[in-house]
């Protein structure tokens, strides 16, 4: 069995047309034509005639939940989500960035998505490795079953086994590559602060030019800000022009949060984000 992308595209188009014509939603967030097949772009359909530009193929990896926060509160939004994206939507609802009533969620079950830059299959190595959206109003296509389920945290073993010095050398090498284009921040559905801490001048949290310690400060703090919120879509690493494996660190933090607080990000609307919540029975063990 494989995913029929054409069929999903057709369904997406017909759903979008219906929603826009009936006036149920103001915008539809989906994917549109890029300069070629392999580079579809995030696309916003505002009227029924825009719908013909919608595409969906295996290169549509972008996380459209990124664009929800750009619209004023109360805008009715329809959004096309894959598995990880739906978790981002849930996380945004948890954080009260958007109301569930204002959303029409078009779920897309998919696997075998490809990274346009490398052509590699996007799987549990760089993302959460889920196939079916966690939340949706309409499911476009059939739920995926019978695919092997691999823990998204398996890739970490190699890095956790490294000794401290080697790990520091690894991260130093990787983070020194950063050119501070902030593509990771722009692609991330959870990075919506305005202004971002690194853009502040008073206090100045870190150097703004691309050199080691500024990079270190920016990335470490970003990892921290996404603790318990990162839904592991891997979009930051795909957006990165210098290929820093940011997903590794995010996965590690997500794993620790899951172990310590017993809850994964973006799995249920009822949850509260782990770091704005506490349990009285949390133990001091987590600090050791």
């Amino acid at each position: 069995m494989s995913i029929n992308f054409k069929q999903i595209e057709e369904k997406l188009k017909s759903e979008a047309t219906k929603l826009l014509e009936e006036g149920k939603v103001g915008v539809v967030l989906a994917y549109g034509k890029g300069y070629d097949e392999n580079h579809p772009l995030p696309f916003v359909a505002r009227k029924a005639s825009d719908v013909e530009n919608i595409v969906f193929n295996e290169y549509c990896t972008a996380n459209m939940a990124r664009y929800i926060v750009r619209y004023p509160r109360g805008t009715k939004i329809a959004i096309a989500v894959k598995a990880a994206d739906s978790r981002a939507v849930i996380q945004l609802i948890q954080e009260d960035k958007v109301k569930r009533e204002d959303l029409v969620i078009l779920g897309i079950p998919a696997y075998g998505m490809k990274n346009a830059k490398t052509g590699e299959v996007v799987d549990s190595k760089t993302t959460c490795g889920m196939y079916n959206p966690v939340i949706y109003d309409t499911l476009l296509g059939e739920e995926v079953h019978g695919q092997s389920v691999v823990s998204p945290y398996d890739v970490l073993a190699e890095y956790e086994a490294m000794d401290k010095e080697a790990r520091w050398a690894f991260w130093k090498k990787e983070l020194d590559k950063c050119i501070r284009c902030y593509a990771c921040r722009k692609a991330c559905p959870m990075c919506y602060c305005d202004p971002c801490f690194i853009d502040q001048n008073k206090p100045k949290w870190g150097e703004k030019s691309p050199e080691s310690h500024g990079n270190l400060m920016y990335h470490l703090t970003r990892f921290h800000h996404l603790a318990g919120r990162c839904i592991d879509c891997g979009e930051c690493s795909r957006a990165c022009p210098v290929d820093i494996p940011l997903y590794l660190f995010h996965k590690k933090v997500a794993k620790d949060c899951e172990e310590m607080f017993g809850q994964a990000a973006g799995m249920s609307i009822e949850d509260k984000p782990a770091l704005v919540n506490f349990r009285v029975e949390d133990s001091d063990k987590i600090l050791e």
Partner: peptide, 17 residues
């Protein structure tokens, strides 16, 4: 709240080396 937050800080420092 601080306990949870600082626990994460600790993990981050550790993973960074």
């Amino acid at each position: 709240y601080a306990r949870r937050r600082l626990a994460v800080t600790r993990k981050i420092l550790e993973f960074a080396g």
